[in-house]
Nucleic acid binder design. Structure first.
Lengths: 186, 186
DNA sequence: TCCTTATTTTAACGTTCGTTAGAATTATAG
DNA sequence: CTATAATTCTAACGAACGTTAAAATAAGGA
């Protein structure tokens, strides 16, 4: 195992542990045990426990959601959102765990205030983005902002079902629910 | 402070700490400090840390959601669900924290497998209950189950907004979103 | 080969944790 | 007033924690 491989492997195992046991429930010793290296190796590659946790959120999580957000082209909006959610089923195990950890921080169930403020900033960009996507097809709808808000709320639960509760959501079911909210959108 | 008062006060402070710092991040010493009693007093009233946590979920949380579920009468369904969600804004601080802790366990962000299986059992009762409530007004709708599922998903996010993220949701906004999903329900 | 640098280890540091033993205090009943 | 029971405390136990010092090993260029 080369040096950079080991650094990546440490983060991989750390993601598993932070996910399963939270920040406080995770110990450097247990990470080292699963990586099969000695304890101070973690400190050779990462300054301390907090830096390891922060790097996962700041780097891996935000890269993941940025990548996810720019992955699809929009033709039909129902189809767009259906494929977006459905695709989450097939994220790698690592990406799912990173995503789950991010949601945990987003809900302020873990992490500190610095990470929370990053999440707040990101959250503010959600409604405008979807507003823009839905604007063309909601031109003649009176309660436009309510529809956007409802859709975003619905998406949030479906994301949590797949990522946090680790359930499989069928494409048909996803499409049905999105279509109900976007009924006024044809 | 009488004996039973102290026992209740310990649980009250414990709820705050478990909420703010999670199970592993909470220490018996810090609880005792905030209660203003000595450390072993916690052990006088509760066998150990886990029993204290379990009691909050098993007793307080499940009592709370049972009470909430049976609080309202159904006349108009949109009104029913609107008032149900809107009422969450005005739960006591303690009840909100207990609720938040329960959701954390429900999402398996905290607690152990025993508590998780209690949550699974409870979750199974959600769809049937709302199916029954919505059945009368969805008689002539073809995708009945999808509407119920969508509503439950929507409710879940709104609950999380109020309870977990500690936001205030206005009655009008709640009603708008519920009405969008239950449009086929008049 | 030798010297320098990068990687990895053993061993320990001081701190805090959950938990308990056992004594001191307070309340209660006879 | 006294004896029993309920409550509360001081003090400590062993274990585990995050972190580091310092030595050992491996790698790579001169």
């Amino acid at each position: 195992m080369t040096a950079t491989e080991l650094k990546a492997r440490i983060k991989e195992v750390a993601v598993e542990h932070f996910n399963a046991n939270g920040y406080h429930g995770t110990t450097i010793r247990n990470i080292a045990k699963d990586v099969n290296c000695s304890l101070p190796m973690i400190y050779y590659y990462y300054q301390n426990k907090k830096e390891l946790f922060d790097e996962i959120i700041k780097n891996d999580f935000f890269n993941l959601i940025k990548k996810q957000a720019s992955r699809l082209k929009i033709e039909n909006v129902v189809d767009f959102y259906t494929k977006f959610i459905y695709g989450l089923n097939f994220l790698s195990k690592y990406d799912k765990q990173v995503y789950r950890l991010g949601i945990k921080v987003y809900l302020s169930f873990d992490g500190d205030e610095e990470l929370m403020s990053l999440m707040d900033e990101w959250e503010k960009s959600i409604l405008p983005r979807h507003s823009q996507i839905l604007n063309p097809c909601l031109k003649n709808v009176e309660n436009k902002t309510a529809v956007v808000r409802t859709l975003v709320h619905l998406l949030e639960t479906m994301i949590q079902n797949i990522i946090v509760k680790n359930r499989y959501l069928a494409e048909d079911e996803i499409r049905e629910e999105i279509a109900i909210v976007l009924k006024s959108c044809e």
